[in-house]
């Protein structure tokens, strides 16, 4: 365990120092966070802004299928949709990435060919993370070997909640090493972390350990991404960037189904960390049904008529 000292982050050599540093944060004002996002959620976006925000949101989508019933055919149609979300309108941007299980990465790469859409894979015994470190690292190596550009790992929530933060940290470091050149997204599974303080601590641990992205949820538990949690994570990313000069991305995943929700997140991003995070490089939506709603609203803005949901293919 070694975090070199930068501007205001001390060098960290062992678990005790990590604990001391992470414990030194001020607590999160839960009431304040919730009222702030409630307020930001009421912002109204005017038409031209909304149009560009919708396109921006489309370009930030990680189009996801993580079901036991996934087949190659399903991944093929997902990839086709990812490249060209609305075949009737060439102005619609491609999504950022498709996100699949490791065994389908090679197929997704094959289908996408030289498209700009990245292939992301979940790994490390997703979604529970309940496996030995060796198994997790093999899982990562598998995904990377098959050609994944991005790896979405889950942290060991059991270890985190039991206070073994060093274990969580070391595991992220090990996974990051196994990723090689692939981007690492660290899923905190905030629905299981109970408090905002824990979300803030886990965000910092992940960022100190070298995460390229911190991500809210797997989408597999009862509580998924929420605006207050996103705000806490964004503020952590902002503070981290201020203190280390390194920008870490944030991905919100699970339960975001409507354009309205997506635009609220974009407003929160803009108001918290600023426009430099408003690119697919630093902000993502992990979603499946959201894309269709974005396409529907986009067409509504363009033609003035509300659109039939089955105008756009299911995934």
């Amino acid at each position: 365990m070694l975090v070199p000292a930068v501007i205001s982050v001390p060098a960290i050599h062992n678990e005790d120092e990590l604990r001391r540093f992470v414990r030194s944060f001020s607590g999160v004002d839960a009431v304040g966070v919730e009222s702030r996002v409630a307020k930001l959620g009421t912002r109204s976006l005017k038409k031209s802004t909304k149009m560009s925000a919708i396109d921006m949101a489309i370009s930030m989508v990680d189009l996801t299928t993580l079901e036991g019933s996934d087949t190659e055919g399903r991944v093929t149609s997902l990839c086709t949709k990812a490249r060209r979300p609305d075949p009737s309108d060439l102005a619609v941007p491609s999504v950022a990435a498709v996100c699949v299980y490791p065994d389908l990465v090679a197929h997704a790469r094959h289908v996408l060919g030289d498209a700009t859409v990245a292939v992301a894979s979940v790994a490390t015994a997703f979604p529970s993370g309940r496996a030995s470190r060796n198994v997790k690292l093999l899982d990562v190596a598998d995904a990377v070997g098959a050609g994944a550009h991005e790896v979405d790992m889950v942290i060991d929530r059991g270890a985190f909640l039991a206070g073994r933060w060093g274990q969580v940290f070391d595991e992220i470091v090990a996974v990051k090493a196994a990723c090689g050149g692939a981007h690492l997204k660290v899923i905190l599974e905030t629905g299981e972390l109970v408090t905002y303080d824990n979300v803030k601590r886990a965000s910092w641990i992940a960022m100190l350990a070298g995460a390229d992205f911190i991500k809210t949820s797997t989408g597999k538990v009862g509580v998924n991404a929420t605006l207050p949690v996103a705000l806490v994570m964004l503020e952590a990313a902002r503070d981290f960037a201020e203190q280390t000069g390194q920008m870490v991305g944030v991905k919100v995943a699970g339960g975001i189904r409507t354009t309205k929700d997506a635009l609220k997140y974009l407003v929160v991003v803009n108001e918290t960390v600023g426009a430099s995070w408003l690119t697919p490089e630093y902000f993502r939506f992990g979603a499946s049904s959201l894309l269709n709603d974005l396409l529907m609203q986009r067409r509504k803005q363009r033609t003035g008529a509300y659109v039939r949901p089955d105008e756009f293919s299911g995934d």
């Binding site: 008529a305 659109v307 949901p309 105008e311």
Partner: peptide, 8 residues
């Protein structure tokens, strides 16, 4: 008019 144009 919105009801009339609504595609669904």
């Amino acid at each position: 008019p919105h009801l009339a144009t609504h595609e669904d």
